[in-house]
């Protein structure tokens, strides 16, 4: 039964796969036997990630692409198909955590709004649209969107991030229902706070430095995503679609009090 967790012979395309959480997922996919197409705007990190995949004995292809440009997205998918002939799974991981993401609503420009929405949400839509036809032709396919706990709860002055990540959850549900008849599943991974280079250098310095606030008492590590993304990309998840897989240290399960503890109270007579 567990051999369905192998990605032997599968081709997986991951956006933003050269850094941060994406790099950790790329490594896990390769270790599970997948050929990996790694896409991002900058060539350097994805070339390095591709070499890591090759060092693990799997095939890899680095493709530079800006997911906010549908022409580049379509080209990225064409290049992947030319090289491997199929795409078994798409991981929409490219995301914007750049500066100016935290702002009072009256200071957000049109351009800032659209920039984050374009990367986090429209980019995922472009990528899903580009792979949907080939996957439908194969009769199988897996689309995995990487959202955030902020897609399920509000964050102070975090408009574009919360709204775009919440939109990803609905994109997943609509893809799952609409494409089920073509053998395509779609699921969302919701990472809670998992520090990476991207978040450490960002202005999101209000984010906590330790996991003391979480039920698990510790922050997540990028490697925690590995077994989950491999499961969702594998045949082992064939009956799972439209769902949300949350890795957040228990934050979303609780969260009604900063301590997580209710004050003790005896039963009334």
């Amino acid at each position: 039964m567990l051999d369905r967790l192998s990605l032997d012979g599968k081709v997986v395309l991951i956006t933003g796969g050269g850094t941060g959480l994406g790099l950790a997922m790329t490594r896990a996919l390769a270790r599970a036997g997948a050929s990996v197409v790694i896409a991002a705007r900058r060539a350097g990190p994805i070339e390095e990630a591709a070499q890591e995949v090759r060092d693990l004995g799997q095939q890899a292809l680095a493709v530079t692409a800006d997911v906010t440009d549908s022409a580049q997205v379509n080209r990225m998918v064409s290049v992947a198909l030319e090289r491997f002939g199929r795409i078994d799974a798409l991981i929409n991981n490219a995301g914007a955590v750049q500066e100016n993401v935290v702002k009072p609503i009256w200071e957000i420009s049109d351009q800032q709004w659209h920039q984050v929405m374009n990367v986090n949400l429209t980019g995922a839509f472009y990528c899903a649209r580009a792979v949907a036809k080939p996957m439908a032709g194969q009769g199988t396919g897996k689309i995995i969107n990487v959202a955030s706990g902020f897609g399920l709860r509000g964050g102070r002055d975090l408009y574009m991030y919360c709204v775009s990540k919440g939109g990803l959850l609905q994109l997943t549900r609509t893809l799952s229902f609409s494409l089920a008849r073509h053998g395509i599943t779609a699921n969302t991974i919701v990472p809670g706070y998992i520090p990476t280079e991207a978040t450490q250098s960002d202005i999101l310095e209000s984010l906590p430095k330790s996991g003391a606030f979480l039920p698990t008492g510790k922050l997540g590590r990028p490697e925690d995503l590995g077994p989950v993304v491999v499961f969702l990309a594998s045949d082992a998840s064939d009956y799972m679609t439209g769902e949300t897989f949350i890795l957040d240290g228990g934050g979303l399960a609780g969260g009604l009090a900063p301590t997580g503890y209710a004050p003790l109270a005896e039963l009334e007579p």
């Binding site: 039920p215 997540g220 009956y239 799972m240 769902e243 949350i246």
Partner: peptide
């Protein structure tokens, strides 16, 4: 290790 308190649905 980082998933807890969650229902994961397969439906």
């Amino acid at each position: 290790d980082y998933t807890t308190g969650q229902p994961v649905y397969v439906d």
